[in-house]
Protein backbone atom coordinates (compact mmCIF):
# COMPACT_ATOMS: atom_id res chain seq x y z
CA UNK A 1 0.00 0.00 0.00
CA UNK A 2 1.04 3.56 -0.67
CA UNK A 3 0.37 6.62 1.46
CA UNK A 4 1.51 10.02 0.23
CA UNK A 5 1.34 12.81 2.76
CA UNK A 6 1.56 16.38 1.49
CA UNK A 7 4.42 15.71 -0.90
CA UNK A 8 6.15 18.82 -2.25
CA UNK A 9 9.03 19.11 -4.63
CA UNK A 10 10.65 22.36 -5.76
CA UNK A 11 13.50 22.97 -8.13
CA UNK A 12 15.94 25.79 -7.94
CA UNK A 13 16.35 28.15 -10.85
CA UNK A 14 18.91 30.93 -10.84
CA UNK A 15 16.54 33.41 -12.38
CA UNK A 16 13.24 32.57 -10.74
CA UNK A 17 14.37 31.08 -7.44
CA UNK A 18 12.50 28.01 -6.16
CA UNK A 19 9.87 26.71 -8.57
CA UNK A 20 7.36 24.17 -7.28
CA UNK A 21 6.90 21.09 -9.47
CA UNK A 22 4.63 19.23 -7.07
CA UNK A 23 2.73 20.84 -4.23
CA UNK A 24 0.88 19.29 -1.37
CA UNK A 25 0.06 15.98 -3.01
CA UNK A 26 -1.64 13.46 -0.71
CA UNK A 27 -3.38 10.20 -1.59
CA UNK A 28 -3.77 6.62 -0.52
CA UNK A 29 -3.65 3.47 -2.55
CA UNK A 30 -4.67 0.05 -1.22
CA UNK A 31 -3.75 -3.49 -2.24
CA UNK A 32 -5.86 -5.00 -5.02
CA UNK A 33 -6.59 -1.54 -6.31
CA UNK A 34 -5.40 0.47 -9.23
CA UNK A 35 -4.89 4.11 -8.44
CA UNK A 36 -4.84 6.39 -11.50
CA UNK A 37 -2.80 9.55 -11.63
CA UNK A 38 -4.28 11.57 -14.45
CA UNK A 39 -2.83 14.75 -15.83
CA UNK A 40 -1.43 16.53 -18.85
CA UNK A 41 2.28 16.58 -19.67
CA UNK A 42 4.25 18.54 -17.11
CA UNK A 43 1.57 18.21 -14.44
CA UNK A 44 4.05 16.62 -12.00
CA UNK A 45 3.07 12.96 -12.44
CA UNK A 46 6.60 11.67 -13.04
CA UNK A 47 8.01 13.82 -10.22
CA UNK A 48 5.43 12.39 -7.80
CA UNK A 49 6.18 8.82 -8.83
CA UNK A 50 9.94 9.41 -8.61
CA UNK A 51 9.50 10.63 -5.05
CA UNK A 52 7.57 7.45 -4.25
CA UNK A 53 10.40 5.39 -5.73
CA UNK A 54 12.97 7.33 -3.63
CA UNK A 55 15.12 8.63 -6.51
CA UNK A 56 13.93 12.14 -5.78
CA UNK A 57 13.84 13.44 -2.23
CA UNK A 58 10.69 15.40 -1.37
CA UNK A 59 11.32 19.04 -0.44
CA UNK A 60 8.71 18.52 2.24
CA UNK A 61 6.05 15.97 3.10
CA UNK A 62 6.59 12.25 3.21
CA UNK A 63 5.30 8.94 1.90
CA UNK A 64 5.04 5.33 2.97
CA UNK A 65 5.41 2.60 0.40
CA UNK A 66 4.79 -1.03 1.34
CA UNK A 67 5.05 0.02 4.97
CA UNK A 68 8.42 1.78 4.66
CA UNK A 69 9.13 5.48 4.80
CA UNK A 70 10.70 6.90 1.63
CA UNK A 71 12.86 9.32 3.62
CA UNK A 72 14.20 7.06 6.32
CA UNK A 73 14.25 3.67 4.68
CA UNK A 74 14.71 4.23 0.95
CA UNK A 75 16.59 0.96 0.39
CA UNK A 76 13.69 -1.10 1.80
CA UNK A 77 11.23 0.89 -0.32
CA UNK A 78 13.24 0.21 -3.47
CA UNK A 79 13.38 -3.52 -2.87
CA UNK A 80 9.59 -3.71 -2.38
CA UNK A 81 8.50 -1.88 -5.50
CA UNK A 82 8.50 -2.51 -9.20
CA UNK A 83 8.83 0.63 -11.27
CA UNK A 84 8.16 0.88 -14.95
CA UNK A 85 9.20 4.19 -16.47
CA UNK A 86 7.86 6.01 -19.49
CA UNK A 87 10.94 5.17 -21.51
CA UNK A 88 11.16 1.40 -21.57
CA UNK A 89 14.68 1.37 -20.14
CA UNK A 90 15.88 -1.63 -22.13
CA UNK A 91 19.60 -2.15 -22.66
CA UNK A 92 20.44 -2.43 -26.36
CA UNK A 93 23.17 -4.98 -25.94
CA UNK A 94 21.33 -7.39 -23.64
CA UNK A 95 18.85 -10.12 -24.52
CA UNK A 96 15.40 -10.29 -22.92
CA UNK A 97 16.40 -13.18 -20.68
CA UNK A 98 19.68 -11.56 -19.57
CA UNK A 99 18.02 -8.28 -18.73
CA UNK A 100 15.30 -9.79 -16.57
CA UNK A 101 17.88 -12.04 -14.92
CA UNK A 102 20.12 -9.02 -14.21
CA UNK A 103 17.38 -7.21 -12.34
CA UNK A 104 16.44 -10.37 -10.49
CA UNK A 105 20.01 -10.61 -9.25
CA UNK A 106 20.08 -6.94 -8.30
CA UNK A 107 17.06 -7.70 -6.12
CA UNK A 108 19.18 -10.37 -4.49
CA UNK A 109 17.11 -13.36 -5.67
CA UNK A 110 18.50 -16.88 -5.34
CA UNK A 111 19.33 -18.30 -8.75
CA UNK A 112 16.96 -21.32 -8.45
CA UNK A 113 14.05 -19.18 -7.38
CA UNK A 114 14.92 -16.59 -10.00
CA UNK A 115 14.94 -19.15 -12.83
CA UNK A 116 11.60 -20.57 -11.70
CA UNK A 117 10.07 -17.12 -11.43
CA UNK A 118 11.44 -16.09 -14.81
CA UNK A 119 10.00 -19.19 -16.53
CA UNK A 120 6.60 -18.33 -15.06
CA UNK A 121 6.82 -14.71 -16.15
CA UNK A 122 8.08 -15.54 -19.64
CA UNK A 123 5.16 -17.96 -20.09
CA UNK A 124 2.65 -15.49 -18.69
CA UNK A 125 3.80 -12.67 -20.97
CA UNK A 126 4.38 -15.04 -23.93
CA UNK A 127 7.97 -13.94 -24.28
CA UNK A 128 9.56 -17.28 -25.03
CA UNK A 129 10.06 -16.66 -28.77
CA UNK A 130 12.32 -13.70 -28.15
CA UNK A 131 14.24 -14.82 -25.08
CA UNK A 132 17.60 -14.36 -26.79
CA UNK A 133 16.83 -11.34 -28.95
CA UNK A 134 18.97 -8.31 -28.13
CA UNK A 135 17.27 -5.11 -27.00
CA UNK A 136 18.32 -3.25 -30.13
CA UNK A 137 16.50 -5.81 -32.32
CA UNK A 138 13.23 -5.82 -30.37
CA UNK A 139 9.96 -4.29 -31.52
CA UNK A 140 8.23 -1.75 -29.26
CA UNK A 141 5.78 -4.41 -28.11
CA UNK A 142 8.55 -6.80 -27.18
CA UNK A 143 10.37 -4.07 -25.27
CA UNK A 144 7.23 -3.23 -23.34
CA UNK A 145 6.80 -6.86 -22.35
CA UNK A 146 10.42 -7.13 -21.23
CA UNK A 147 9.94 -3.96 -19.25
CA UNK A 148 6.91 -5.45 -17.48
CA UNK A 149 8.84 -8.64 -16.81
CA UNK A 150 11.71 -6.64 -15.33
CA UNK A 151 9.27 -4.70 -13.14
CA UNK A 152 7.67 -7.76 -11.60
CA UNK A 153 10.56 -10.24 -11.56
CA UNK A 154 11.03 -9.99 -7.78
CA UNK A 155 7.29 -10.24 -7.14
CA UNK A 156 6.97 -6.84 -5.40
CA UNK A 157 3.81 -5.98 -3.47
CA UNK A 158 3.72 -2.46 -4.94
CA UNK A 159 3.87 -1.61 -8.64
CA UNK A 160 4.37 1.85 -10.09
CA UNK A 161 3.66 2.38 -13.78
CA UNK A 162 4.69 5.74 -15.17
CA UNK A 163 2.82 6.25 -18.47
CA UNK A 164 3.29 2.64 -19.56
CA UNK A 165 1.15 3.13 -22.66
CA UNK A 166 2.47 6.37 -24.09
CA UNK A 167 3.58 6.11 -27.70
CA UNK A 168 2.40 2.53 -28.20
CA UNK A 169 0.08 1.20 -30.90
CA UNK A 170 -3.35 0.03 -29.82
CA UNK A 171 -2.49 -3.67 -29.95
CA UNK A 172 0.35 -3.26 -27.49
CA UNK A 173 -1.67 -0.93 -25.29
CA UNK A 174 -4.30 -3.64 -25.03
CA UNK A 175 -1.76 -6.22 -23.91
CA UNK A 176 -0.19 -3.89 -21.36
CA UNK A 177 -3.55 -2.91 -19.85
CA UNK A 178 -4.62 -6.53 -19.74
CA UNK A 179 -1.51 -7.51 -17.87
CA UNK A 180 -1.89 -4.66 -15.39
CA UNK A 181 -5.42 -5.84 -14.72
CA UNK A 182 -4.21 -9.38 -14.13
CA UNK A 183 -1.64 -8.04 -11.67
CA UNK A 184 -4.40 -6.29 -9.76
CA UNK A 185 -6.23 -9.58 -9.52
CA UNK A 186 -3.09 -11.00 -7.90
CA UNK A 187 -3.63 -8.46 -5.10
CA UNK A 188 -0.87 -5.97 -5.93
CA UNK A 189 -1.01 -2.32 -5.00
CA UNK A 190 -0.82 -0.51 -8.31
CA UNK A 191 -0.36 3.14 -9.14
CA UNK A 192 -0.68 4.09 -12.74
CA UNK A 193 -0.08 7.45 -14.39
CA UNK A 194 -1.37 8.43 -17.79
CA UNK A 195 -2.82 11.25 -19.78
CA UNK A 196 -5.27 8.97 -21.59
CA UNK A 197 -8.75 9.31 -19.98
CA UNK A 198 -10.24 6.10 -21.31
CA UNK A 199 -7.52 3.98 -19.74
CA UNK A 200 -8.30 5.40 -16.35
CA UNK A 201 -12.00 4.89 -16.83
CA UNK A 202 -11.39 1.30 -17.80
CA UNK A 203 -8.87 0.28 -15.15
CA UNK A 204 -8.83 2.47 -12.10
CA UNK A 205 -11.04 2.29 -9.06
CA UNK A 206 -9.71 5.56 -7.70
CA UNK A 207 -8.20 8.49 -9.49
CA UNK A 208 -6.44 11.77 -8.75
CA UNK A 209 -6.35 14.54 -11.31
CA UNK A 210 -3.07 16.40 -11.26
CA UNK A 211 -2.63 19.79 -12.87
CA UNK A 212 0.22 22.26 -12.40
CA UNK A 213 1.65 20.22 -9.56
CA UNK A 214 -1.52 20.08 -7.49
CA UNK A 215 -4.27 17.53 -7.10
CA UNK A 216 -7.37 19.22 -8.45
CA UNK A 217 -9.74 16.42 -7.47
CA UNK A 218 -9.55 12.86 -6.27
CA UNK A 219 -11.90 10.00 -5.47
CA UNK A 220 -13.69 7.08 -7.10
CA UNK A 221 -14.33 7.58 -10.84
CA UNK A 222 -18.12 7.45 -10.55
CA UNK A 223 -18.13 9.63 -7.48
CA UNK A 224 -16.08 12.32 -9.24
CA UNK A 225 -18.31 12.28 -12.31
CA UNK A 226 -21.35 12.80 -10.10
CA UNK A 227 -19.72 15.47 -8.01
CA UNK A 228 -18.73 17.62 -10.97
CA UNK A 229 -21.79 16.74 -13.09
CA UNK A 230 -19.69 15.47 -15.97
CA UNK A 231 -20.59 12.87 -18.56
CA UNK A 232 -17.15 11.34 -18.76
CA UNK A 233 -13.60 11.85 -17.43
CA UNK A 234 -12.57 13.98 -20.39
CA UNK A 235 -15.36 16.42 -19.71
CA UNK A 236 -14.47 16.41 -16.02
CA UNK A 237 -10.83 16.96 -16.78
CA UNK A 238 -11.42 20.07 -18.88
CA UNK A 239 -13.76 21.51 -16.28
CA UNK A 240 -11.13 21.07 -13.59
CA UNK A 241 -8.37 22.50 -15.72
CA UNK A 242 -10.44 25.59 -16.50
CA UNK A 243 -11.36 26.13 -12.89
CA UNK A 244 -7.88 25.36 -11.70
CA UNK A 245 -6.51 28.32 -13.64
CA UNK A 246 -5.59 29.93 -10.39
CA UNK A 247 -3.00 27.43 -9.33
CA UNK A 248 -2.88 28.47 -5.73
CA UNK A 249 -6.39 27.37 -4.88
CA UNK A 250 -7.07 23.67 -5.10
CA UNK A 251 -10.46 23.20 -6.71
CA UNK A 252 -11.75 20.94 -3.97
CA UNK A 253 -11.47 23.70 -1.43
CA UNK A 254 -13.59 25.99 -3.63
CA UNK A 255 -16.51 23.62 -3.36
Amino acid sequence: MIIAERLCKSYFNYRKGWIPAVEDVSFECLPGMIFGLLGPNGAGKTTTLRMLSTVLRPTSGTAYVAGYNVLYNPAAVRSHIGYMSAGTGIYDRMSAWELVEYYGKLYGMESDRLRERMETIFDWLKMNDFRDVLGSKMSTGMKQKVSIARTIVHDPPVLIFDEPTSGLDILVVRVVLQKIEELREQGKTIIFSTHAMHEVQKLCSRVAILHRGRIQASGGVGELLDRYESSDLEDLFFKLVERGGDINTPVESVY
Partner: peptide, 14 residues
Protein backbone atom coordinates in the same frame (compact mmCIF):
# COMPACT_ATOMS: atom_id res chain seq x y z
CA UNK B 1 20.78 9.01 -22.76
CA UNK B 2 19.22 5.60 -23.41
CA UNK B 3 16.90 6.00 -20.42
CA UNK B 4 18.14 2.99 -18.50
CA UNK B 5 19.71 4.98 -15.68
CA UNK B 6 16.41 5.61 -13.93
CA UNK B 7 15.45 1.96 -13.70
CA UNK B 8 18.91 1.10 -12.42
CA UNK B 9 18.68 3.79 -9.72
CA UNK B 10 15.29 2.48 -8.61
CA UNK B 11 16.70 -1.02 -8.14
CA UNK B 12 17.84 -1.86 -4.60
CA UNK B 13 21.50 -1.40 -5.57
CA UNK B 14 22.87 1.58 -3.64
Amino acid sequence: ERGTMETLLISPAS
